[in-house]
């Protein structure tokens, strides 16, 4: 099972890295979320895998390592805050710059195509 677990973590990292290397903000956010899953699972596994040994005293004779769990718990919450911040940054970026590219070359290549699209479908509203 350790092999399966490690493969899952590896796959999540692969998918996350691939997504984060795409050229639009949303995929980057997806990739970031995926990588944080992987990181959390990885950190958690540093306490080794154990079945039915929750670290609640009196429920078992042996307990899973509670320390990585405590760290991962806060990591999950902070990961959410970070994801939220990046998402809002992406929205702000789109609002201020007019596109959601992160490859640094958006305006040249897709200028005309995107502009027309925006004109037809979206209306700029000042919130």
């Amino acid at each position: 099972m350790e092999l399966l677990y490690a493969s899952c973590v590896g796959l999540l990292v692969s998918c996350g890295v691939f997504l984060i290397l795409r050229s639009r903000t949303f995929t980057v956010v997806l990739g970031l979320t995926m990588i944080s899953y992987a990181v959390n699972l990885f950190l958690f596994s540093s306490g080794r895998l154990s079945l039915n040994q929750a670290a609640v005293l009196g429920t078992s004779t042996e307990y899973a390592d509670p320390l990585p769990q405590a760290f991962v718990l806060t990591a999950i919450v902070i990961g959410f805050a970070m994801t939220a911040f990046v998402v809002i940054l992406a929205i702000r970026g789109r609002a201020d710059l007019g596109n959601d590219h992160v490859d640094g070359q958006a305006p040249n290549r897709n200028k005309n195509k995107n502009k027309n699209k925006n004109k037809n479908k979206n209306k700029k509203v000042k919130a």
Binding site: E2, A6, V9, L12, V17, S46, G47, R48
Partner: peptide, 28 residues
């Protein structure tokens, strides 16, 4: 990108496997 991500995934999976198959000495 597939190359980079696959390589990274393999590395992380290997490290993870190496880690969880070794006995634990914990301050817990």
């Amino acid at each position: 990108d597939v190359g980079i991500s696959a390589a990274l995934g393999i590395i992380v999976a290997s490290i993870c496997y190496a880690l969880i198959t070794r006995p634990l000495e914990s301050i817990s």
